[in-house]
């Protein structure tokens, strides 16, 4: 792994993060850099590279452009399925982040790569899922595998995915009448 692996005893200092591209092995980030550059060259100011590490890259996209970027990735790069969709709640920034991890089954050289496609939507204090400003376009037409993952993000965080055919709850009981659980202001009892 590309992080600090030189000394066996645990390190007290967190590893540095500010300078991703100039790390120890040039070849691997170059390969990742190549396909990330494909995306940044196409959509120059709407995307921003968060990090390029060995086998893991992350690209932040504005929420208006996420559907186009996803379509571009689906058509022009070998990434053909989404492995998981993570929703993250940032109450200080008043935003909710959604991270799609994309992988590739068809191309052998890309089999280790996971591209994280991240976006953020504004967050409201009193959520009304479906009827407030936390909306994102659904990536189901490009990556079919996100269907159930997006339903889970909808019920757990309140992010409504437009053009998703079926925004219903998946894991929560039908009579859930409380805040979406994964938000930070939903506290577990006793913690």
């Amino acid at each position: 792994m590309s992080k600090a692996e030189t000394t066996p005893p645990p390190k007290a200092t967190p590893p540095p993060k500010a300078t991703p591209p100039e790390k120890t092995e040039p070849p691997a980030p170059a390969f990742e850099k190549s396909y990330v550059d494909q995306i940044t060259n196409q959509f120059s100011d709407d995307v921003e590279v968060e990090y390029i590490k060995e086998n893991r890259t992350r690209v932040n996209v504005k929420k208006e452009k996420i559907a186009e970027v996803a379509k571009f990735i689906k058509d022009n790069t070998p990434f053909d399925h989404a492995e998981s969709v993570t929703g993250v709640d940032f109450p200080e920034d008043k935003e909710i982040g959604v991270v799609y991890h994309l992988g590739s089954y068809t191309d052998d050289t890309y089999s280790k790569q996971v591209l994280a496609l991240a976006t953020r939507v504004p967050r409201e204090e009193n959520p009304n899922p479906g009827n407030d400003s936390t909306k994102l376009p659904s990536l189901r037409d490009m990556f079919y595998s996100v269907e159930f993952h997006e339903r889970e993000v909808f019920e757990m965080l309140g992010v409504y995915f437009e053009s998703h055919p079926d925004n219903r709850r998946l894991l929560l009981p039908e009579d859930w009448a409380d805040l979406p659980p994964l938000r930070k202001d939903f506290r577990n009892k006793g913690r």
Partner: peptide, 12 residues
């Protein structure tokens, strides 16, 4: 297509 708002939903 249904959107079920959490706070005002009658259960089930």
């Amino acid at each position: 297509e249904q959107v079920i708002p959490t706070k005002q939903m009658p259960p089930g």
